[in-house]
């Protein structure tokens, strides 16, 4: 049995430190998702508007955010704000801004898709019953879209958690950074630490994302 460098994990507080690093990434994704969902719902509703200007603006926003790699967006916000506005923002704040903007675009598109899948007669019947547009959404349209949206939004959470691993690249100390520090600190005593530590990090992400994707898959089947 070759030395897989797993012993490093049980030295001192290494495991706790790794989990702490993971929490940084997960926290940023949860905050971003929490802000993205309401904003995305709003964006989705706005996108069904018939106004050509609104349509064009939201469309450009959506397409730009979706075609750019998230890391490019992180660079734009993290490095760009410093040079353009002269303010220094932390890596954490830049991450939350980018992932919220991205999550809002993704969520907005999901909501728009769900909304346009509702047959037109639902809107017309509601209008015929003299419901106001707000009432139509609240009592007729939203209840019908929610079932389609919940599995997709849960999927968005796993995508968000996976994507937050990128924050390492703008200098946020998260699980990979901690892993690097641990490996570096133990390079003499256990030269193979890289194997055990990176395997553990991979496993940690899997343990978080897998149950969430399973839940999404199950709900999709149940309500699909």
């Amino acid at each position: 049995m070759p030395d897989l460098g797993l012993d490093v994990l049980f030295k001192g507080k290494n495991m706790i430190r790794l989990l702490g690093g993971l929490w940084v990434a997960v926290k940023i994704s949860l905050i971003s998702v929490a802000i993205s969902i309401p904003l995305g719902i709003l964006l989705g509703i706005i996108m069904t508007s018939k106004n050509p200007l609104i349509k064009a603006v939201t469309r450009v926003y959506l397409e730009f955010i979706r075609i750019m790699p998230q890391l490019v967006l992180l660079f734009i916000v993290f490095f760009g704000t410093t040079s353009a506005l002269g303010v220094n923002i932390s890596g954490e704040l830049a991450s939350v801004i980018v992932f919220t903007a991205w999550g809002t675009a993704e969520m907005g598109d999901l909501v728009r898709g769900a909304l346009i899948s509702i047959p037109k007669h639902q809107y017309e019947s509601a209008a015929a019953l003299t419901l106001t547009p707000a009432q139509t959404y609240l009592y007729v349209i939203i209840p019908q879209t929610v079932r389609r949206l919940i599995p997709l939004s849960i999927n968005l959470i796993t995508r968000m958690i996976k994507t937050t691993s990128l924050i390492l690249m703008i200098g946020v100390v998260e699980v990979l950074k901690v892993a690097q520090q641990i490996i570096e600190a133990n390079r003499m005593s256990s030269p193979n630490a890289a194997f055990g530590v990176y395997l553990t990090v991979l496993f940690m992400y899997f343990i978080i994302c897998w149950p969430i994707s399973m839940l999404a898959k199950r709900l999709e089947k149940k309500w699909g």
């Binding site: 796993t158 996976k162 994507t163 691993s165 990128l166 390492l168 990979l176 892993a179 490996i183 890289a194 194997f195 530590v197 990176y198 395997l199 990090v201 991979l202 992400y205 899997f206 994302c209 897998w210 994707s213």
Partner: peptide
Amino acid sequence: NTPLLIQLFFIYYA
């Protein structure tokens, strides 16, 4: 269910 960045780290360093 794992990010590409971690997969790359695993392949490259581990």
